[in-house]
Design a protein around this nucleic acid. Structure first.
Length: 597
DNA sequence: GCCGTTTTCGGCCCGACTGTTTTCAGTCG
């Protein structure tokens, strides 16, 4: 975690405290906003503080600036500490309990002296919560459930696990006779790397009752528990403990609804402010002239949106119309995080995001020579069948003994094999490379006289992934400095929800990679997705070139690139930012330029 | 707490569902 991200956590804590203290919500919103700003991997906090330029960031004012400066200069902040000591620290954790919010926490604390989840649990067991205003038998039952479930409920699930569950449920909903169409919304549609809960949106055919759809949804296979079920919304928990929300809307406002339920929340908040500036109101039913909407609001509430005439809406049926009528270019779901995309859309300066067909080659994959399942030729054929023009064979280097990493002699033999096979498949160029280990000290697993015989070199860290930031920085810088290294493979070594991987000083890494002509990989295999979206975004901002590689260990693996594309799109990447969206000549030029610099 | 081609004060997005209520507060996204 960088210093900036650590300070972001402090601001989140302060926001939580303000909520529990019952301060005006806008204070905690402001602190949460500062936290989001500080999460951005590309900001150089030390530099901003040194230049006294913090307040140039939209959302940071006097108070926040002073707190940040204190943390950066002294490692602590009196403002933070006095706020933190104003409530017991155990209260903050209670916010994680589903169904428990700041008001409830404050009530328990004030009326019953409860200061932690543990105390809440024992008070519950001893019946001490009975008689509190607004707390009835159902609420007590829900509390007990929340406490029991808290360990599992806290973690967001990796996108690789959610996708198959989502497609099964989506297929189920699409099968209902009353449903015109259905899609995934929420963070899965935005392709975030982890998913809190799954959102599905269904369009109801004219003349049908939404309750029929939500009721039937709760009986789909895999549904374990029903959390809520009304005429327009149902919430369930699956056998795999994933919460799934279904929303049912009339077809006439499907576009507004999919926009609304795709989020992110922050993106939508800003969009609605933009609507207000134009005398409009934006909600899940449509974009309306505010006066029109106010005349309809009561009807909508009474009929769940079925009793209104959508032809008077400024936009409702098509998602693209919502953006167009707000004078914005269409914003792809992957960009909807309020990271500047609305401002870019207003100036028609959004990036043209990379798409799968932009990819022309694979730069990182394995064969039976190390731990892959297919031969060189089988991999090359499969790549050609996917429409690719070139493939680089990059088996593991010798230190990866467990993956049958190649000793220099076997690598030299493989060079001969590839030279012999290249040209056998029309339209496909086969290159010989290696995924060479970056050892803990930054030295490489092969000598330069071996590396210089290869067409392309991926250098990756596989071990010593817990080393401190300074050593990690020196390690990666040393690898980047090697003239034969063309891309750093899965630069952090992280695995989603399993390990954090290396946390070097990214500004130095990006600068060196850019200056030396070394690409940085977005490894598309789950659970790697490494670099992640934030770091990839910062890398592009720093002028770096990226690759999108499958790291395939089988012919099927070569096709599993979509999550990597998604990461690149979330980073705002265009084809020109991605090395393997170039031709084979571009790849050779990339290699030669670094060797002769 | 932050911000300003309507504002340096007065706003700050919007609605669904639940539970405990006789009309609404709290939570959630």
């Amino acid at each position: 975690m960088t210093l900036s991200q650590e300070i972001a956590e402090r601001f989140r804590t302060m926001a939580a405290i303000l909520e529990i203290r019952g301060e005006p919500v806008f204070k905690s919103i402001a602190f949460t906003r500062v936290a989001r700003l500080l999460d951005d991997a590309s900001i150089d906090l030390a530099d901003l503080v040194a230049r006294d330029a913090l307040e140039s960031l939209d959302g940071i004012g006097k108070s926040s600036r002073s707190i940040i400066v204190d943390f950066v200069r002294n490692g602590r902040s009196e403002d933070f500490e006095s706020l933190a000591s104003s409530i017991p620290s155990g209260l903050i954790e209670m916010l994680n309990l589903p169904g428990v919010g700041p008001k409830t926490i404050a009530l328990f604390w004030r009326e019953r002296g409860i200061e932690s989840i543990e105390q809440l649990e024992s008070a519950l067991n001893q019946g001490k919560l009975a008689g509190l205003k607004g707390i009835g038998p159902k609420k007590l039952e829900q509390l007990a459930d929340s406490i029991r479930m808290r360990a599992v409920a806290q973690t967001r699930v990796g996108i690789g696990h959610v996708i198959s569950i989502a497609s099964t449920l989506l297929e189920g909903v699409r099968g209902f006779a009353e449903v015109e169409r259905a899609d995934v919304a929420g963070s899965l549609r935005r392709r975030r790397e982890t998913i809190g809960d799954l959102d599905i949106l269904a369009a109801l055919k004219a003349g049908y009752d939404g309750s029929v759809v939500t009721d039937r949804f709760t009986t789909l296979p895999g549904v374990r528990e029903i959390l809520a079920c009304g005429p327009t919304k149902a919430s369930v928990r699956t056998d795999s403990n994933l919460q799934v929300d279904l929303r049912v809307v009339p077809t006439d406002c499907y576009g507004a609804a999919i926009q609304y339920f795709t989020g992110s929340k922050e993106h939508n908040v800003k969009l609605r402010s933009r609507a207000i500036e134009r005398g409009l109101t934006l909600n899940e039913w449509g974009l309306w002239k505010t006066t029109d909407w106010e005349a309809r609001r009561d009807t909508v509430k009474a009929t769940a949106g079925l009793g209104i005439d959508y032809s008077t809406a400024v936009a409702s049926r098509h998602e693209a119309d919502i953006y167009a009528k707000l004078d914005l270019a269409f914003i792809e779901p992957e960009l909807r995080e309020d990271r500047g995309e609305i401002e870019l859309a207003a100036q028609n300066k959004l990036p043209t995001l990379v798409v799968r067909i932009d990819l022309r080659g694979e730069l990182h994959c394995h064969t039976t020579a190390s731990d892959g399942e297919a031969s060189i030729l089988e991999m090359a054929h499969a790549a050609r069948a996917l429409g690719l023009d070139y493939i680089v064979i990059t088996d593991h280097s010798r230190s990866q003994a467990i993956a049958r990493g190649l000793e220099p002699e076997r690598l030299l033999q493989q060079i001969q094999d590839v030279r012999r096979l290249d040209g056998k498949i029309p339209g496909m160029t086969i290159l010989i490379g290696s995924e060479v280990d970056i050892l803990a000290d930054g030295s490489l697993d092969y000598d330069d006289d071996i590396l210089q015989q290869l067409d392309f070199v991926v250098a990756s860290p596989h071990t010593a992934l817990r080393q401190d930031s300074q050593r990690a920085t020196e390690r990666l810088l040393r690898a980047i400095d090697n003239p034969y290294v063309n891309v750093i493979g899965h630069p952090t070594g992280r695995l989603i929800n399993q390990r954090n991987g290396l946390e070097p000083e990214w500004n130095r890494i990006f600068e060196a990679a850019h200056a030396s002509g070394t690409a940085l990989e977005i490894n598309a295999s789950y659970p790697r997705l490494d670099l992640n979206d934030d770091l990839a975004r910062a890398a592009i901002k720093a002028g770096c070139t990226l690759t999108i590689d499958t790291d395939a260990h089988s012919t099927a693996g070569l096709g599993e690139v979509d999550l990597g594309i998604a990461v690149a799109r979330r980073a705002g990447a265009e084809a020109k930012n991605i090395l393997n969206c170039g031709t084979i000549s571009d790849i050779r030029a990339w290699v030669n330029r670094k060797r002769h610099r």
